[in-house]
């Protein structure tokens, strides 16, 4: 049994300690907003916040986040920065297929929590999540909009 803090709640999880956080979220807890894309920290579809840092849950053993605060897309709007990011995502009509966008929103939230007024270079450096629909220009525009909201 692992005891994890997910979106402000303490959750008991029956999983091996080396199970990636991604699969604890999706399979043990039924929180499917966080996506599986590559499993090797390349695409970022699984991005969550661990103590405020954008973290790729697919390569993060669940036991390594015991005692840390995990925030997922399901709770992002409870964070004032996250709420601004979501509104910017809606306003800029970012999503196409949408599959990567949970991770994009989480990565943008982490960026703006740490760097409220990012430069274009900051955005390019932080927003490394892949999007096969190529929504990158809308993503960058939404991050800039959220930064001024």
């Amino acid at each position: 049994m692992l005891e994890l803090s997910i979106n402000g709640q303490t959750r008991q999880v029956d999983a091996e300690g080396d199970t990636p956080l991604l699969w604890v979220l999706r399979d043990n807890l039924g929180m499917t907003g966080t996506k599986y894309g590559c499993g090797i920290a390349q695409c970022g579809a699984c991005t969550v916040l661990v103590d405020g840092t954008a973290t790729r849950a697919c390569v993060t053993p669940a036991e390594s986040v015991v005692g840390a605060k995990v925030v997922t897309i399901e709770a992002v709007e409870r964070d004032p920065v996250g709420a601004k990011v979501v509104e910017a995502w809606v306003s800029r009509q970012v999503a196409q297929c949408g599959y990567c966008q949970s991770g994009q929103v989480m990565a943008a939230t982490a960026l703006l929590q740490q760097t409220p007024k990012p430069t274009d270079e900051d955005i390019a450096g932080a927003m490394t999540n892949l999007c096969r629909c190529g929504t990158y220009n809308a993503i960058a525009a939404a991050v800039r909009q959220a930064a001024t909201a």
Binding site: T32, G33, T34, K35, T72, I73, E74, V76, E77, V86, W89, V90, Q93, V94, A95, G98, Y99, Q101, S102, V105
Partner: peptide, 12 residues
């Protein structure tokens, strides 16, 4: 479909 896809609620 934009809000569901911006909040992780869209189901694949």
């Amino acid at each position: 479909d934009i809000r569901d896809k911006s909040t992780g609620r869209a189901q694949y």
